[in-house]
Design a protein around this nucleic acid. Structure first.
Length: 177
DNA sequence: CCCTGATTCGC
DNA sequence: GCGAATCAGG
């Protein structure tokens, strides 16, 4: 693939919109993220004007997940409560505790009380791979409605985020309130 | 481990 | 000019 005017324009556009190099590479197709970064530098449009897209996004994600993990109302209070009841377990060990989730309007997930749901690591579609869990898309307690990347993969039977819980027969899992 | 952008340097 | 490899960082 060569850098046609069109592709360069799209690159400029996406870069200015804050997409990461890898995301842009995926959009363009036929090029690696390194190629994108290299081109960006050659075009001398490195600095993306606004605030760092990476950091901004991370912070937003954390804030949102904290809010979602809380029980509906209060804002700052929620964050605190969640953090105290759930130290830094947002990874694999998080779901060793039983939990319950319930989809509310749109894609809002609301866990029960002091339960942790690993939705903090939201990734863009382009960042998903065989190794990244794709939950929440559906109900983690329902096998037929749980789309976990590792769940169906032959390589690893365990989901990094759901641990064994995600693979127990639905009948053996129990919701706890 | 996943990811990010920055830089280098052979082609 | 290009981009893989590498680096430094989150």
């Amino acid at each position: 693939m060569n850098w046609t005017d069109e592709r360069v324009e799209l690159l400029k556009k996406l870069w200015s919109e804050g997409l990461s190099a890898s995301q842009i590479a995926a959009q363009l197709g036929g090029v690696s993220r390194n190629a994108v970064i290299g081109k960006v530098h050659r075009l001398k449009l490195s600095g993306r004007g606004k605030t760092s897209a990476t950091q901004t996004r991370s912070k937003k994600v954390n804030t949102n997940s904290a809010a979602r993990n809380g029980n509906v109302s209060a804002g700052a209070t929620q964050t605190t409560a969640v953090r105290t009841s759930v130290p830094k377990s947002i990874g694999a060990t998080a779901l060793q505790t039983d939990y319950a989730v319930e989809a509310v309007a749109q894609t809002v997930i609301r866990p029960a009380n002091d339960v942790v749901v690993p939705i903090s690591r939201r990734l863009s579609l382009l960042q998903l791979s065989e190794r990244t869990c794709k939950w929440p898309i559906g109900d983690p307690l329902n096998e037929d409605f749980h789309f976990c990347g590792n769940d169906s993969g032959e390589s690893s039977p365990y989901c990094t985020y759901h641990s064994k819980l995600a693979f127990q027969p639905a009948s053996e899992r129990r919701r706890v309130r």
